[in-house]
């Protein structure tokens, strides 16, 4: 008999026998709520003492309750898993699996006939961390006039749109992208907080300086060619500014 098990068969049914003969079982995926016992220590005496206190407080909970033993918080590579399992069983808990990253504990679990789960919390933690690392993006800042010599505009955590031009001696800065509907003759600094995916867009470029995520180019001795009359995009490619 061939077993074709699909990965992630959540809430799906895999029929093993397609012949008219009725099958003897079905595999079903699903989510069960299981209590996890997250251990802060591998000291059996301490665990037992605390479990007894808990049992006195809530005896109904500790009546043959299946639990997953989680060793996420433990730094050590090996634990006396058999002793811990016995301690749990004495207090009305039935360990059904372990969750850990330590290989030694995983092997002990299999030897004891327990299942093993990889660390899920790790992935979730890193995801959350990534989100908080992400800067809070504010709505795009729009300047409806020309930015003139001596003026400075900064769009914090946002894109910046200038409906006029940016004149010589003026400076526009954004943590996001910069879009100039007129001519860029002054300085434009995009990705001021280091975002290197942003760019500077303008209808015509005669810039004094363009910077993206700290990589900048001055154009003081630059005689702009005639085709600089066209709209351009300045972005960062392999650490170099590209004007297109």
């Amino acid at each position: 008999m061939n077993f074709h098990l699909l990965a992630n068969t959540r809430a799906s049914v895999v029929r093993l026998n397609s012949k008219e003969q009725p099958s003897s079982f079905q595999f079903k995926g699903g989510n069960l709520t299981v209590t996890t016992l997250e251990l802060m220590t591998a000291n059996c005496a301490a665990i037992e003492q605390e479990l007894q206190q808990q049992t006195r407080r809530a005896p109904a909970f500790f009546s043959q309750t299946p639990v997953v033993l989680a060793f996420d918080r433990l730094k050590q590579e090996t634990v006396a898993l058999e002793l811990i399992v016995d301690t749990c069983k004495r207090n009305g808990l039935i360990p059904i699996a372990v969750r850990c990253s330590q290989d030694a504990i995983k092997r002990s679990a299999w030897a004891l006939g327990l299942g093993w789960f990889p660390l899920q919390a790790d992935r979730r933690l890193s995801e959350v961390k990534k989100e908080t690392d992400c800067e809070i993006r504010k709505p795009t800042k729009i300047v409806r006039s020309t930015v003139r010599s001596g003026q400075q505009v900064y769009a914090e955590h946002a894109d910046l749109v200038i409906l006029g031009s940016v004149n010589e001696g003026a400076e526009v800065i954004a943590d996001g992208n910069i879009q100039i509907w007129g001519s860029l003759r002054g300085r434009a600094i995009a990705g001021a907080q280091g975002d290197c995916t942003v760019g500077v867009l303008c209808r015509q470029i005669r810039a004094e300086l363009v910077s993206i995520a700290g990589t900048f180019q001055t154009f003081d001795a630059f005689a702009w060619p005639d085709d600089s009359e066209r709209p351009v995009e300045v972005r960062l490619s392999n650490g170099r500014l590209v004007i297109e």
């Binding site: 003139r148 010599s149 001596g150 004149n167 010589e168 001696g169």
Partner: peptide, 12 residues
């Protein structure tokens, strides 16, 4: 022209 640009900024 540059200085006039600056002055227009001040007028604003």
């Amino acid at each position: 022209v540059r200085d006039s640009d600056r002055i227009i900024g001040l007028l604003d």
